[in-house]
């Protein structure tokens, strides 16, 4: 099995409103997949279905080999999730957060201790072991949140605008963590509003009005649309949007 995500005509309707309209795509193992779209294009709904949080109206999708209709619990065990809004408990210490999320994903005892040390080493956070997460700078928090999201070596990690508001240098360090995870075979499924970050992805899809309007490697997309960068590609596509809002 080389594709960790496979969808076929995946659709979600809310009443008469089609939030996600028959999307078909696949994402390979270890791939960094950019999932772009304007607000209201249907990104969040699509991502919820893939994470097993929302049952599709029609179509099929397999995530990490599991069916999104009836194997949600298995999906949840094989994915990691991190969003800009919520990721760590601010009123717990760094190691307490690691222990908590490690425990949630079934890592205990000696292995958890090893994992914790390893993780703090990689992030250079050894000295901050007992610091409250609330008092860490945002960039560190996000890096820690990412490492915690993949503490159980999931097949896929879903990243929902992980770098919003993070300072430019830290933003780049964050992407290096994504590269390292991808080299280990973890697939990264990323949404972002920074168009330069779209360039870091192996492939990028752009959703417009619930459909996938374009899907290819950034270079191929730039060539196809005669654009100088992904920003122009995105604007060209997103301007076509008919529905102004969800």
């Amino acid at each position: 099995m080389n594709n960790v995500i496979e969808t076929n005509q995946l659709t979600k309707r809310f009443g008469s409103f089609t939030a996600v309209n028959s999307i078909s795509f696949s994402v390979g193992r270890g791939e960094i997949f950019g999932f772009l779209g304007a607000n209201g294009a249907g990104k969040t709904t699509a991502m919820r279905m893939l994470c097993g949080l929302s049952v599709p109206t029609s179509g099929t999708a397999r995530v990490a080999g599991f069916n999104v209709y009836n194997e949600q619990e298995k999906i949840k065990k094989s994915i990691g999730y991190m969003s800009q809004k919520f990721s760590l408990y601010a009123d717990l210490r760094v190691w307490e957060n690691i222990r908590l999320f490690g425990g949630i994903y079934g890592i205990h005892g000696k292995r958890l201790t090893e994992k914790t040390d390893e993780l703090l080493d990689i992030l250079d956070l050894r000295g901050e072991r007992n610091t409250m997460v609330a008092s860490l700078p945002l960039g560190w928090k996000q890096k820690l949140a990412f490492s915690v999201a993949i503490i159980h070596e999931p097949a896929i990690v879903f990243l929902d605008e992980p770098t919003g508001g993070v300072d430019p240098a830290t933003r780049r360090q964050f992407w290096e963590l994504i590269y390292q995870a991808s080299a280990r075979g973890i697939t990264a499924f990323v949404t972002t509003h920074y168009m330069d970050e779209a360039e870091y992805c192996n492939r990028v899809s752009v959703m417009v009005d619930g459909k996938i309007e374009a899907l290819d490697a950034p270079l191929a997309l730039r060539q196809k649309y005669g654009a100088a960068n992904m920003n122009e590609v995105f604007h060209g596509l997103a301007r076509k949007a008919q529905r102004s809002d969800e």
Binding site: A38, N39, G165, H193, F234
Partner: peptide, 10 residues
């Protein structure tokens, strides 16, 4: 413009 998509931002 935080959290708003690139098109709306422009």
């Amino acid at each position: 413009t935080t959290g708003v998509d690139p098109v709306s931002r422009v």
